[in-house]
Design a protein around this nucleic acid. Structure first.
Lengths: 358, 358
DNA sequence: GTGAAAGCGCTAACAG
DNA sequence: CTGTTAGCGCTTTCAC
């Protein structure tokens, strides 16, 4: 902490400026600027000379000066409007952030992470509107929360997850194809020989909850099966267990369950085991998300994998295109993948037991 | 993507400048600047008038201009020198990043995440030295990798994890107290009645591997037990399983194992089960890290919890203090906590079986 | 194609 | 205590 040698007397600037490059290359500052910004209107020889000088001096442009002059910041905000508790417990966020950061590391943009728990949302808004960023990414898992929607008029924003309300759908967003994923995993259950397939749906006021139920229904209809076995949970394991108990309490046969996320599927496991039933022999179980709940469950859980890094990367890509006025689709849906695991092993292996054992 | 209304003809600047505030408050720009920067040398009435104008105009300072003039960026880089594969699979990083981001969200600093996979490390270095950030946080899980060490001379840096080499220990770092944690969990095993306790250590060229082995040894010595049952792994589940097999192959009794991380403990589980032994009845198992491997194992794994968010927050705190020339310790050790789970249930409940069952 | 000149919005001595 | 005066390092018309 004692002052260390820094600006010794007559010390030359440690960081070379554009002006120094210009002098070294024998051109004007404007020309160097053009080369740095890859302007097409600089002759070959001059470009070379400048690049040589840049390399020799190890020149790095000063972002602040560049931003100030160009009125562009080259900064993208990543807004996470969540309580810290939720943030800490959800691996999805981390993946999305990493995906976005990774994509941007290949561009000239820089990621600026803003955690905006309730109390500071006003501060966040002002920061965003204060000309500190060129655009913003808003990630709110599983909620479709677009409370930053109105900022979209002043700043390019890309949301993760589709908006809940129709009226808000002027916004750009990237989402996972929840409905298709749910339909796919449901079809997988059908192909495994299951005929009495229930679902533990998510809250119907959240897009993922709604869309996944819809996908299940569609697949059931298409397979000519009854789509009446529905119970609603809130995406927690406990709610999954409770929903499963309600399903089992209905006096109808059930040989398969699709839970709208892995946590609820984990809850369903315990309810099923509590009844002395077996997975997958008696009831096949499938989830959605593809997080560690699915891989560590016993037996491992069949699920629909969400491409969370790709989602983050895609959000960043869409935003950059918007900022640079390149054409982009307002809505991007990411494909999911089915991950088959023992929890949905087909019934055929027990074909010899078509007659119930007891 | 057709051009939308932006700069309408004669449109007034949407973002108020400091100059406009000065005019509105009837003072000079310098005075406004002083108020914004909380300089003590501005009279009460004037401060009030300026603040009123700021609020009325909804003024937000321009970061770029401020940085350019003050030669401070208010930006902190978070460097993650890892392959993307590792980054994506390790929950530790995410926690540290979140902790740092959360801490900084209460300050005037902003986090700038740099993912620096091998190929781009030169680009990263130049960026860091190009005056784009006020300081850097370097997080490299489990490795003590300080390849950015030499930058410490030009830029304040705080590392996560202690450096491997003695010679490099001029650097500031925050680390988990690996040795104390390992000793604590080992003592816990001893208190549970275990007497033949082995360890599956991590690589001895990584500080955490080394320190945790040391903690185990120390606790064993202090308890008067033999500290000879050591096998080395590489922190993967597979290596943990292999090490456990080697331990079991030694023709000596083993009733407890401390694995240097949860993944290796998970591997040990499978080797133990493969021998027809039971956890915890025959062998108690404990890990280190406190990630989901420990909570989802069956039986759930006793482990040492790493305060990863706190570590991230502390790193940020130390760095900010360095930047602002406030006193800070060069080394900060974070305390770990013991999480007791069924995998180390005490032997006492089977006290009646002091005589081996066979 | 290239250079000259005029700032971008703010801070930081220096006077007063 | 407050105003004046210079820039910070770069981009960007506008001439040449």
């Amino acid at each position: 902490m004692t002052s260390t040698s820094e600006t010794g007397p007559g010390a030359h600037s440690p960081v070379p400026t554009l002006e120094m490059v210009a002098a070294a290359a024998g051109v004007s500052r404007a020309t160097v600027s053009r080369v740095v910004n890859a302007s097409p209107s600089v002759s070959g020889p001059v470009t070379e000379a400048v690049n040589e000088a840049i390399a020799r001096l190890n020149y790095v442009p000063n972002r602040a000066a560049r931003s100030l002059a160009s009125r562009r910041t080259q900064v993208i905000a990543l807004v996470v409007p969540e309580t810290t508790a939720k943030l800490f417990s959800d691996p999805f966020f981390a993946s999305v952030v990493q995906g976005a950061a990774l994509y941007l590391s290949d561009t000239d943009y820089t990621l600026n992470m803003l955690i905006s728990s309730e109390t500071r949302s006003e501060k966040t808004r002002r920061y965003l509107l204060g000309g500190n960023v060129d655009g913003a990414l808003v990630v709110s898992h599983h909620s479709g929360d677009h409370s930053y929607e109105h900022l979209g008029q002043s700043l390019p924003i890309v949301f993760g997850g589709r908006p809940l309300l129709q009226s808000e759908s002027e916004s750009y967003f990237v989402d996972v194809d929840n409905e298709a994923g749910a339909a796919t995993v449901t079809r997988h259950l059908v192909e495994g020989g299951r005929r009495h397939i229930a679902t533990i749906a998510g809250p119907q006021d959240m897009p993922p909850g709604f869309d996944r139920l819809r996908g299940w229904s569609r697949a059931m209809d298409e397979s000519g099966l009854d789509a009446g076995l529905v119970e609603i949970g809130d995406f927690t394991p406990e709610s999954g267990a409770a929903a499963m108990r309600r399903l089992l309490a209905r006096a109808v046969p059930i040989d398969g369950v699709f839970a709208a996320n892995d946590q609820m599927a984990a809850g369903a496991y315990s309810a099923i085991y509590a009844e002395g039933l077996r997975i997958p022999q008696d009831i096949a179980v499938a989830g959605f998300d593809g997080n560690y709940f699915s891989s560590t469950a016993v037996p491992a859980l069949t699920t629909i994998n969400q491409p969370s890094h790709e989602l983050g990367a895609k959000m960043a890509e869409v935003l950059v295109r918007r900022i640079e006025n390149k054409p982009v689709q307002r809505v991007t849906l990411m494909e999911t993948t089915l991950v088959v695991r023992p929890s949905t092993a087909p019934l055929e292996i027990t074909a010899s037991q078509v007659i119930p054992p007891h």
